[in-house]
């Protein structure tokens, strides 16, 4: 069980949350202009990095709000959480970037990683 720190509610058990896949996948400006392959890529193709990954979560067992989290897919440590619409708080991280980045010492968004 990991703790996930909801931006609204604070740290709660993982079981209160549901996963929403990769964050910051922009909806196409003009979907009808896309080829079938481009549309397929938008719908189905996602990054699958080993390392930090920006992803969406929803606190379905609490405030029922969606938010973004930067999670290390290898260690399950969550480096940052931020609300939908907020800029990500790990500035150098591009979605799917695999360069290992340690969370800043001041980041207290999560008291513990994997237990």
């Amino acid at each position: 069980m990991i703790l996930i720190s909801c931006p609204n509610c604070g740290p709660r058990d993982e079981t209160e949350f549901h996963y929403g896949g990769q964050a910051h996948v922009a909806y196409p400006d003009d979907p009808s202009a896309l080829t079938d392959e481009e549309w397929g890529r938008y719908l189905f193709y996602r990054e699958n990095p080993k390392g930090l990954f920006a992803e969406r979560w929803v606190h379905s067992g609490g405030c029922r709000k969606w938010f973004n989290a930067v999670r290390d897919t290898a260690t399950y440590r969550i480096a940052a959480v931020y609300r939908i619409g907020e800029t990500r708080s790990v500035p150098s991280l591009a979605s799917g970037e695999t360069r290992p980045t340690r969370p800043a010492a001041s980041d207290q968004s999560l008291p513990g990683g994997a237990k």
Binding site: C9, T15, E16, G61, G62, C63
Partner: peptide
């Protein structure tokens, strides 16, 4: 007051 669970019940 908090939204939470008791057993499996929200």
């Amino acid at each position: 007051a908090y939204v939470t669970q008791l057993g499996p019940v929200p």
